[in-house]
Design a protein around this nucleic acid. Sequence first.
DNA 1: GTGCATCGGACAGGCCGACT
DNA 2: AGTCGGCCTGTCCGATGCAC
Length: 502
Amino acid sequence: MRALFGGRSEVVKTLSAVDWPGRRRELNRLIEDFEATAQSANRTVHAITGGKPSPSPELMEAAVRSWFRERVERPDFDGTADPGQEPFTSIEAQRADLQRLATSLGAETPVTTAWIAQDMIEQNGWSVEAGSNTFRRLSRLVARGQLAALGRQRQDLALLPRRTDDEMFSAENFRLDEERAKARPAAHVSIRSLFAKYLAERKPAAATEKAWSRFIAAWVEFIGHDDAAAITPDDVLRWKDHLASEPIAAGQCRSAKTVNETYLAALRTVLGWGVSNRLLSANAASGIRVYGPRRQRTRDASFSDGEATAILRASLRSPPIGVSSQRALAIRWVPWICAYTGARVNEVTQLRADDIYQEEGVWVIRITPEAGSTKNHRYRAVALHNHILEQGFLEAVSNLRGPLFYDPAQYRGGKKGNPQSKKCGEFLARWVRTEAKVTDPRVQPNHGWRHRFKTVARRVRMDAEVCEYIQGHAGRTEGSKYGEQPPSVTAREINLIPRYQL
DNA sequence: GTGCATCGGACAGGCCGACT
DNA sequence: AGTCGGCCTGTCCGATGCAC
């Protein structure tokens, strides 16, 4: 192995890039190179040492029986061959050789026997050296198979009933082979490789990849192996109990929802993918779930009037000392946009300068997965409320380029699951707690706007279908998925929301 | 020291396909 | 078409680390 790494036991590389994104890219490239080298080295070592199993006598016998069955069931194996034909006579000529090999140790291996044996070794992925004892043993078994096939052929030619002279080819032995094959575990399938294939095919959102990677890792950690085919329902049950009873922070346990719909769902889905792609025979996690108490709600999820005005008032105060211009801009405008459009906070924090434009004479914001992500993977354009325009939002962003609420230059090369736009949303959540002093843990600091938007929309009888569109909910009925909500329509409905008087 | 980036983690929200 | 539940995604919070 060491020789394949230039005789070294350590690999040291120095990063040459001067900035963080560059370094991260360089590091990723180096890691990829290293892993590729390690993999190819592994393959080389594997090829040298075999790594492949040496077959047991039982396995070899079974393989010869399987060859025999295939041979005699082949369409060209019939009793019509003319005994005078060349192939027939040559087989007859080999008969004596085969007989000698099958019964005595020192005999020469006929070339056909060697070919069949070699083919068998390759087919089964065995490690058997030509000329080794195992090879000779296999050759003798193959010779017995050839003799039995020959005997069968002679019986067919002479229209004699088929009879098995060699016990090795008895019906009972074929039956036992089938039983053993059923009992034998399937080829090793690692749960990590299944997950990787699932990711490659499904291409889930970055947030999902981030979360599920942890769950799969937690599973492997718990069960102590990586073999997906070896997982039993009892294993999964033990994991379920462990997850539901393990104390997490503050002496609490995970909720049933967390266990069922994140940890178990991830495992179940990945195993299910394995089953549907014929890599596994059963989904060991299927149907396993925790039954826990329902969560109780003791207040409305939307901001109260007092909370809403507290946040909006705080947005007008000068921002905390030291925050970047982007964060200051976020504090000033994001709460207002959330209040008047009911958008998800990160749909707003990912807005770019180009996403604010005029259409049909109406100023709109474009919320699009291109900027980062949207939950329903769809684009939408939503009018800005007159109150936002009057406060000078357009002027505030008119000179900006690119993302409005975070600075791409600050990017250090983090994964897609932790984008800067989300961090801006998290920053605002903290700001709501500490600066705007909305501290009730039963209401979410940003998401509370979405609930409130819906509540207010009902109060002013906003058109329900347009409201769904504005908030970026997938259409509830088939009909609502057709057609568009033009800016003039969203403008009309959005301006039904009464102005916040501070 | 501090602001921002990153990651780990719990869980709420909500899409969407299956089932009537 | 409406309902339901599983799957998936986003929100929120905590901890830690780096650069200025």
